[in-house]
Every structure is written in structure tokens, then in C-alpha cells.
Design a protein around this nucleic acid. Structure first.
Lengths: 256, 256
DNA sequence: ATTGGCTATATTGTAAACATTATGGTGGTC
DNA sequence: GACCACCATAATGTTTACAATATAGCCAAT
């Protein structure tokens, strides 16, 4: 038995007037709290590459269901931020050495373009935003590691926003996260992505509308970032299996 | 009651030897036949922007289950190839006019970079591949619309492959599909993406190792592509509601 | 005759139970 | 004493059924 339709208490759609068939609420899964939570945890380096992302654990942590977690993990796997292995589960993505280099190369191409467009399109509002961010970065508490990491990432996102191209912004966001994973994989896992003194220079050049200079400074900043990583594969804690097995294999050959 | 373990008849893993923990079979969902089917259907313009992608219909068409379809659609939605509206279903993505322009701008940035890298890295094997493709494009049957569309798309993919950067290749692939959707939305829905005479020029310049020339030709090719689309919103069949409503509104104002 | 609300149907979203697969521990055997 | 097979447990993947929502058709009323 169904109750009268007029008694329903979840209107949910205040204006169901037809005529705009699509732009009703196309809120993406990107706005999902689980997705956002994992993304910020990765960009703040609280989640290290290779970390297991168990469905039950996440469901309990976020207070939601396994299906919801599954959807979020599938989305993150599509974005190459997590890696899903059949019957094994989801792990924070760990790029290969070649992929790390490709990511840096792609980021150089995209961000030199975005910083150039940012200089071209810079207006009063953009200047205000940029100055405000540089103020934040200059005054921030360097002891708060997590806020620090978020702030330095925000600088690059802000530059991409100033470029005024949503598609480039999304791609740059994705590449920044993957850069973060590359640095965490091939440098020390807790190291920051950006050296802190580079951003004020770039910001000043943008504000001065020095397009070539800003592009050059951004390229230098990214190259410096890339030169810090080395193709070491065996780290301290995770992926010790390969090293151990190699050692065992050597012992077996030596002893038997 | 469980049967003996030794009786299981689905070995599935011929060599389960431990020692390679990760590269077992990380086959992505990109290789999924449903995903590939929808992608090729879109790039061949058999699926037009706004087309409904019902879960039951797709499950019946591909002979699989709804869950499988759901995962594929979620993945395609993450890649912005389909749009999912809550409680309404999945539709082929229809970019807005601003987004279409952003896509073209992003593609100019990426593909001028990839064609430059392709010239730099060109080797004997790359030359062979490129020549083979140009041969195919020159000789192909122009009446076979679908093969034609696939071939012209393959040219840009081949150039991105020659650049030797997997990350750039994936991003370019995605942008090509979204370009295809932009053209189908804002030009005639069945029109090809690329004008056919541009590819031989670009290919010849790459083979001649004329980097600046190849970049310029690619930029020109993409600009020509972009200039063909116009910000018309009312098309013939889909989204006819807005046009009808505008007409009705005009009549109402004129008659009443 | 057209507009409004109501009902029936189809489709999407979600929850829970079930099957399958990896993993860690245990006992047996050489 | 070490290695191998087996079993118990936990996690993932899948099926099933159910609930909620939107769509289309229908009837009544103006």
C-alpha cells in the first residue's frame, strides 16, 4: 500500500520544472567526501604509495557503506591515483620510474602553458588572489607540516585557475597528485613536493606580467623538483618483497 | 561443505609463483570490452552526444550483467566521456560551448608538444609506422565512413605514441574523444573530426624532421578544426525542447 | 480541448547475503 | 630443524532482491 504522493517529505528537488533537462544537479563524484578525503590525505602525504586501502576499514572510517567506498575507489583508480589489483584490493598508486619521468615531462608542458596564460589573462581579481596566496605562503606556520603541504600545492592550482581553462586545470590537478606520488615513491616518503623559495619568485614574475620570465621560472622549478628524485626501487618498508626475494634467491644459489 | 581444494577446475593463474607481487595482472578497466565498445562507438560517431546509455539495454547488448555495465559507465564518467545524472541514468557527454573551447585549447598545447617530441625522437621504427599509417590513410575506402573516422583518429594517436610519453598519450587520447564530442555537438553530428588533407602534410614534415614546421602544421590543423564549430545550441533532433520553447515563447508574446 | 493531478511502469540506486580468492597459522613429514 | 601441504580466517567480488526515483499514460475537471 502506498501513501498519498502529497505526503512525501523529501522534496529534494525544489524546482522540478522541465525545460532544462540536464543542468539540474550534475554534481560529480569528485565532490564526494570519501574521494576528497583520500585525495587530500595523499597530497598531505598521510597516505604513502603502496598503502592498502581496505574497503571495510574505509567504510568504518568514513561511516558509510562498502558500496560507496567501492565507487570512490573505482573513480580514484580511473584517475590513476589508486591501483586496484583483482582479488587483492586497492592501494595508493606507486608510479614506475618511467612513469614518474613521463609525469614530470607532462607537467612541464602543461604548467609552462598555464603560467603563460595566467600572465596573459591576469586581471585585478587575479592579482588580488595571487597576492593573498603569496601572503599566506610567506606567513604560514612551517611547523604544521600538513598545512604546509596543502599550501604549496595550492599555489600551482591557483596558477592553473588563473589560466582560465577548466580542462587544463583538471589535468594539472591530476598531474600534481601523481607528481606527489612520484616524489613520495622515489625520494623520501615524507618530503615536500616543492622547494619553498621558488613560489615567491614565480608569483612576482606573474604579477609583473613578465611572461617569458614566469615560464622560465616555472620550468626551472619543475626541473629542480624532478632532479631530486633518483631511480631507487627498494625502499624501507613497502615493496621490500622484491629485495628480500632477490636476497633469498642469491642465498639459495650460493648455499645449494 | 567444501570440496577438496585439489579438485578446483579454474586454475586461472598458470604461474602463481610468488615473487612478483604487483605486475601480475594489473589490466585496467580501460581494456574492458564494454568500455572499449562505447569509446569506439563514440569516436566513430555512432553514439551522439546526449544519447541515453541505459544499463539494461547495454547489459543485453554486451551479454553481461548490470554491475559490469555500471562499473564501465562509472569509469567513462570519470573520464568525462559520459555524464551520469542521479536517478536518470548515463548519457553520452555533451560539452558546453566554453568547455569545447577549453578542450581545443588544451589539445593545441598537448599536441604541439607531442608532435615536437615525435620529431625529436623519430627513429627507424617510428618512420616505418608513420609511413605505414599514411599509406593506409591515402588508400582507404572513403565510402566506409566508420573506418574512415577510426583512421583519422589513429593518426593523432600515432603521433602521440611517437612522442614516447605514456602520460601524454593517455591525456591526448582523452582529449581527442572529448574533441569528437565537441564537434558532434556544435557542428553537424555526423561530420568527421579532421579534414582529410591535413594529415599527409603533417606526416611529411615529421618524416623530414622539420620540427618547427610540423608544430606549425599541427597547430594550423587544430585551429582549422576549432573554427568549424559555432556556438549553436539548438540542434535538429536532441535538445529540441529549448528551440521549441523559444518559439512558443515568441508566439505567446506576439499573439497574446 | 487543455491542463492538472494521479497511477502504473520502467529504470536506477542500495542493501544484504553468498561465493571466491588471498593470507596467515598449524601440523606433519623428510 | 626446515620445508611443504592443509585449514581457518579475512578480504574482495558477485548475485539477488528490494527500495526509491523518474517517466509516461490516464482520468477528471475547468
Amino acid at each position: 500500500m502506498k501513501r498519498a504522493r502529497s505526503l512525501k517529505r523529501k522534496p529534494k528537488r525544489p524546482e522540478p520544472k522541465r525545460g532544462e533537462p540536464e543542468p539540474l544537479d550534475p554534481r560529480s563524484i569528485d565532490d564526494d567526501p570519501v574521494v576528497q578525503g583520500i585525495l587530500t590525505a595523499i597530497s598531505q602525504k598521510r597516505l604513502k604509495p603502496g598503502a592498502k586501502l581496505g574497503e571495510d576499514k574505509l567504510a568504518a572510517a568514513f561511516g558509510t557503506t562498502r558500496i560507496h567506498i567501492r565507487q570512490a575507489l573505482a573513480h580514484l583508480a580511473s584517475r590513476k591515483v589508486v591501483m586496484q589489483i583483482p582479488n587483492r584490493g586497492a592501494f595508493v598508486y606507486r608510479p614506475s620510474w618511467e612513469e614518474a619521468q613521463d609525469i614530470f615531462a607532462a607537467r612541464r608542458i602543461l604548467e609552462t602553458a598555464t603560467v603563460g596564460a595566467a600572465v596573459d589573462r591576469l586581471d585585478k581579481f587575479g592579482k588580488t588572489e595571487l597576492k593573498a596566496h603569496m601572503e599566506l605562503e610567506a606567513r604560514h606556520d612551517r611547523n604544521d607540516r600538513w598545512a604546509s603541504l596543502s599550501l604549496t600545492a595550492e599555489f600551482h592550482i591557483l596558477v592553473a585557475k588563473l589560466a582560465g581553462n577548466r580542462v587544463l586545470l583538471d589535468m594539472s590537478r591530476e598531474l600534481m597528485l601523481r607528481t606527489s606520488l612520484a616524489i613520495a615513491t622515489f625520494e623520501q616518503p615524507g618530503e615536500p613536493d616543492c622547494s619553498p623559495e621558488a613560489h615567491p619568485d614565480i608569483g612576482a614574475l606573474i604579477l609583473a606580467r613578465d611572461k617569458a620570465g614566469a615560464i622560465q621560472a616555472m620550468r626551472h622549478h619543475l626541473e629542480e623538483m624532478e632532479q631530486r628524485i633518483k631511480p631507487q626501487e627498494d625502499k624501507d618498508e613497502v615493496d621490500e618483497l622484491t629485495a628480500i626475494f632477490q636476497e633469498i634467491g642469491a642465498r639459495a644459489r650460493a648455499g645449494g
